[in-house]
Structures are given as C-alpha cells and as structure tokens.
C-alpha cells in the first residue's frame, strides 16, 4: 500500500476520534494494530498501541477542553515504524515516544483551528436563507466531516514526512554504541501509563472493589 493511501486510511480512522461514531477504533491500541497490519507487521502495531494507550488514559475530553491529541500521533508513529522498518529498536522507540508527545501537542492545535473554522461554517449556516435550513444543516455536517478529514491528513503528513527525515538524520548522527542510553525509554513510558491508571482508579472509592478485583486478577493470573 502506498504511503498516500495509508495516510488516507489513518485520516478515516481519525474521524472516529471526535466527529463520527466514536467507536474506539481510533484508540491507540486498535488503530495502531490496524495500521500495523496494513503495513505488514501487526505485532509491531500491537506493541506500539499498548505502549501509547496507557499514556493518556487519565486525560478526559470533558466539556470544551481540548486534551492532548494522542490518537493521530500514534497513527503517524505506527506508519513510520511500518514503512521504515528500523533495526535500532531502542533508539527508534525513544524517537517515536518523543514524536508522539510532540505530535499530541501539535494535534491539539490542529483541533483548535478546525473548530475555529467550524465557527465560520456555523455562522454561514445561521446567516443563510431560512427556507433552506434543512439542506444547509446537512451540508454543514458534511463540511465538518470533510474538514476534519483534511486536517487529519495534513497532520499525519506533518508528522510522517519530517519524522521520516528526522529519523534518517538521527540514525546517522547517533552512533549505535549510544543506543543503550535509550534502552529504558519503553519501560519508563509503560510505567508512566501504569501511574496514570493508578490515578484513574484512586478516586473510584469502595475499597472492596479494589480488593476483589486485585484478588480476582491474581487468581486469574495463577490460572493462566
């Protein structure tokens, strides 16, 4: 599959984040696995999905708040991993982690701008002819979908192409013997994710739930 087509698939998956259905297909665990499969390495997708899924698990899109936009960054990171097929995995994982963190920040800005454009579409809808309100409302929804697709496509390109170029430079610049410096990045991110999960559940009161869940989990583990 060409990279342009893969970016389009990634952009379609991105529609699930905010604008259509919200079926969780855009969650890192699922989207990265699907993109990994498209790139011919499903297990790489699973690994990246698990790595990033935990990171922003406690960040909730409540009300009009725009949280870090991790989902699209993970899609871009998985595309990079799938197309580059790196050999220096420790360094590459560290690179992807930094890319996803930066990408989540850029993605939040993109979302903010797309919502500003949505204001313009809304204002045109309000100022439009009254008798065409039904058609114009449906049209506005389509504009919203198309706009989000275009924004996602641009964001994925912005992350993929400079990311690819940057990786080639980093690979040349950093000698392989220094890879050991980055060997703990993956476990640090997984542990950070676990810290976020603890935070998420600390508020969920009722010690009995925690105790029973812990017990059941341990029992299941022993059985497995």
């Amino acid at each position: 599959m060409s990279i342009w087509m893969a970016l389009a698939v990634g952009s379609i998956i991105s529609l699930d984040i905010h604008v259509f259905f919200q079926s969780a297909i855009s969650q890192p665990l699922i989207s990265a696995t699907l993109i990994g499969w498209l790139c011919g390495d499903i297990m790489l997708g699973v690994q990246l999905g698990m790595l990033f899924q935990l990171l922003w698990i406690s960040s909730l899109p409540v009300g009009a708040v725009i949280p870090p936009e991790i989902n699209q960054s993970v899609i871009a990171a998985t595309l990079l991993a799938g197309y580059i097929k790196p050999e220096r995995m420790d360094l590459f994982t560290a690179f992807l982690i930094i890319l996803v963190i930066l990408g989540s920040f850029i993605g939040a800005r993109f979302l903010y701008f797309s919502r500003l454009i949505n204001v313009k579409i809304f204002e045109r809808l309000i100022a439009g002819r009254e008798e065409q309100i039904e058609k114009q409302t449906s049209r506005a929804i389509w504009y919203g979908l198309i706009l989000q697709f275009v924004f996602s496509y641009i964001l994925l390109m912005v992350l993929y192409f400079p990311g690819s170029f940057l990786w080639q430079s980093i690979e040349k610049f950093i000698p392989p013997r220094l890879d050991i410096l980055f060997s703990y990045f993956e476990i640090a991110v997984l542990a950070s994710g676990c810290g976020f999960v603890f935070f998420l559940y600390k508020r969920k009161h009722k010690q009995i739930i925690l105790a029973s869940a812990l017990l059941l989990g341990l029992l299941l583990l022993i059985k497995v």
Binding site: H18, V19, Y143, G144
Partner: peptide, 11 residues
C-alpha cells in the same frame, strides 16, 4: 452518530 461533526466554539 454525527452529533459532534460540526463542533464549534460558538454553539
């Protein structure tokens, strides 16, 4: 399912 398709800061 499209309810957030035109999420905007005004309405």
């Amino acid at each position: 399912f499209f309810i957030q398709a035109l999420w905007n800061f005004k309405s």
